[in-house]
Design a binder for these strands. Structure first.
Lengths: 236, 236
DNA sequence: CGCCTCTTTGAGCTCAATCAAGGTGTGTGG
DNA sequence: CCACACACCTTGATTGAGCTCAAAGAGGCG
């Protein structure tokens, strides 16, 4: 198997399996069971903007994000990118498409910053994952929360742009340990593509926030200095 | 069990089980298995706009739509309705929330026109449904296509409103047997709430289409006279 | 019958898109 | 090492699609 990136050896897989216990979906599963779930898996280390799954490619694999972040997106007929989802460590990516026969990836998956993933074969999903009732239940819980995010976004569609940006930033920080730092290298254009708006509009609003001191754009990362103000904006 | 509507007796459940075979999710399952999946179920017959699940109510049940249609929505802080999804016969509703402990419905589910549903207990989902690997696989396939719909909508967010309305109407017809009639009583306001726009905007565009003869608003139902024109609008 | 929600149309306004033009940083190839 | 390309960031000016407000008609339901 060759996905076009660096793939570590079996000992790397073995140590990655150990990491899985810290994620909600895999908590309490036995070592044996985890090894069954990762049968034939490999570790993929991705650099910034490296592609994990290509849009339209045959969907033979799914993945678990170990560290870093992934951007799930597609391109519109007009040629601009539409970002569906930003995924965090612990997220299972591409699981739903595994149940389809002869299907292709419906989105493009690219790394944001350096990331590590466990890449697993489709067959293993259908033969080992689906048979573990507890695991299926947890996967569905993860899907539920992902669906919730879509629905929150939909219900915010009439809010002013500032509220939508605030909501997006607040969701991104909540994924890291530091409660007000966004540890993912995210551009304003990516935020714009996620919200389906022009990048200039995002820039205008975030520049204003920087001036007001609500956020700080140190170097590559983004820090939310006044989460209370952003929360207020969403609540409006 | 009392959900506030008419509930038929066991023979009605038995005949409803027979209907399940026509839906993709349940095709080929044995009568025995279907009865296990519908253990303790009841049939609920709903009238136009009757509520099946209330937003925020404890999620003890999920449902399968047998006929008619359902609207899944919630209210925004501003007080207007946000319609997440229009579901069709064969759709399994509320399954994802069943895996959550002590959870509540994240959306309100209301009937559009007269509908019939099988209502099933949460416990049955976790004990009987999740253990059937083939069924779980098909449920995930259904979730996949629902997710696809969300993503299509997201990628259309920069298109002009006319394209979004066209897309919505085309999705609604595709659910019925008659290939250009929308058999669900849907208001322009509901379309607007689904797209997160003002109802006046939808009315203006659809009035124009009626004048041009692209659509016909006979009585209660809506007929797409020129699907080609609407498809063109989306493609743009 | 009266209330309520949906529909319709018009007029004016506003927020975000678009267009334009310059700045910055990064990677690439000569 | 420099030059060039390319993608992103920034700011300003202009424009327009869709929102808001308003007012009136139409159907459904208790």
């Amino acid at each position: 198997m060759n996905l076009g990136g660096k793939i570590d050896n079996n000992s790397a897989v073995s140590s990655a399996i150990t990491e899985l216990n810290k994620f909600e979906v895999f908590k309490g599963l036995s070592r044996d069971e985890l090894e069954r779930l990762c049968a034939g898996a490999s570790i993929k280390v991705l650099t910034h903007r490296e592609c994990l799954f290509h849009l339209g490619a045959p969907a033979h694999y799914f993945a678990i994000v170990l560290s870093g972040a992934m951007k799930l997106s597609k391109f519109t007929a007009a040629g601009d990118e539409s970002v569906m989802y930003f995924s965090a460590p612990g997220d299972v990516i591409g699981a739903l498409v595994m149940t389809q026969v002869n299907s292709v990836y419906p989105v493009m998956v690219k790394s944001m910053g350096p990331s590590r993933c466990i890449v697993i074969n489709r067959q293993v999903y259908n033969e080992n994952w689906l048979k573990n009732t507890e695991l299926v239940s947890r996967i569905q819980t993860q899907l539920f929360s992902r669906m919730q995010r879509f629905q929150t976004q939909q219900s915010h569609s009439k809010l002013p742009l500032a509220a939508k940006i605030a909501q997006t930033l607040l969701e991104l920080v909540s994924k890291g340990p530091d409660s007000d730092l966004i540890e993912i290298p995210i551009t304003r254009k990516e935020i714009a593509d996620h919200l389906g708006v022009a990048s200039e509009s995002v820039i205008r609003i975030m520049s204003e926030w920087t001036k007001e001191g609500y956020i700080e754009a140190d170097d590559k990362f983004l820090r939310i200095v006044r989460p209370d103000v952003l929360i207020d904006l969403v609540g409006e």
